[in-house]
Structures are given as structure tokens and as C-alpha cells.
Amino acid sequence: MPAETWSIAELAAEYDVTLRTIRFYEDRGLLTPERRGTLRVYHPRDKVRLGLILRGKRLGFSLDEIATIVDMYDAEPGEEGQLEYLLTQITHRRADLEQRRHDIDETLRELAEVEARCHADLDSLRSAAGAGAARPDGVPTNG
């Protein structure tokens, strides 16, 4: 029974990516479809690798990191080395995201403080204007 294969259009539709995206990954050596003339024929290995590439991108890994991870499966140190490397990369990625979360939280706190001061200053200006305060030239505003 022959192995199932896919065209570039079928893979693109299944993974909701463009043909250009798949060709880019091929140019980078991440995918290696069989060539039948000008037709690209993708095998199960390519399909799995595309899924791993897209998952890696969603998790924020660079293409070089993704390439290292998926290439390790086929070469030394094999699956064990691949998993150890992936765990290390996950630790680094998690630390980076935690730092970004901290930075975002700090920025949101600072924005809230500035916003509260602006509202207070605006309220003060409006209440002073409503009470007939003098303009900078000394002329009353209500009168």
C-alpha cells in the first residue's frame, strides 16, 4: 500500500498557510518534498515537520531553533537529545515570556498612575474654571 502523499496546495489548505510559506520552509531546508518534474510531492515526514514548524512558530521559537529541534530527530543525538534540547528551549522561552509579562504589568501600573493624575488635574482645572477663577492675565473667567 503506497504511503499517503500531499500536494503543496493540500498541505497549505490543511494547515491554513500560504504556498509561499511552505516554499519558504523548503528553501530553508526544513521541508524536503519529492520532486516529480515541477510537482512537489509531500510525504508524511514533511507533513509532520510542517506541523512541528508551525507549532514552534506559535510558541515563539526562531526558525533556527525549530530547525535544530526537528533535525535532531533524524540525526544524533536522536529523540532523547531532541527532547533535552526542547526542554532547555522551553525553559528559556518561559523565562523570556515571564519577564515580558512582568514588564507589561509594570507598564500598565505606570499608565494607570499617569491616567489617574491626568484625571485629577483635569478635574481640578474644570472645578477652578467653574468657580470663576481668574485667567492668567488676571481677568475673571465668569464675569
Rank of each mutant, 00 (worst) to 15 (best):
P2K: 13
I8W: 01
A12K: 11
A12F: 05
A13Q: 15
L19P: 11
L19Q: 12
R20S: 12
F24L: 09
F24I: 01
Y25N: 02
D27P: 09
R28T: 00
G29F: 04
L30W: 14
L30E: 15
T32F: 01
E34I: 01
R36A: 12
G37C: 03
T38I: 06
Y42V: 01
P44G: 04
P44R: 08
K47A: 08
L50I: 12
L52W: 02
R55W: 03
R55G: 10
G56W: 07
K57D: 03
S62W: 00
L63G: 01
D64M: 02
D64K: 06
I66S: 13
A67P: 00
M72T: 10
M72N: 13
Y73I: 08
E79K: 04
E79H: 10
E80A: 15
E80D: 15
G81E: 13
Q82C: 11
T91S: 13
H92K: 08
H92P: 00
H92S: 07
R93N: 14
R94A: 03
Q99E: 14
Q99P: 03
R100A: 08
R101A: 15
T107I: 14
L108F: 01
R109S: 06
E110R: 09
L111N: 10
L111Y: 03
V114I: 09
E115Y: 02
A116P: 05
C118S: 13
H119V: 07
A120E: 14
D121Q: 07
D121P: 00
D121T: 04
L122T: 13
D123T: 01
L125M: 15
A128Q: 05
A129D: 15
A129P: 12
A131G: 11
A131E: 15
G132R: 12
G132D: 15
A133I: 04
R135S: 11
P136I: 08
G138R: 00
G138C: 00
V139G: 01
N142M: 02
G143I: 08
G143K: 03
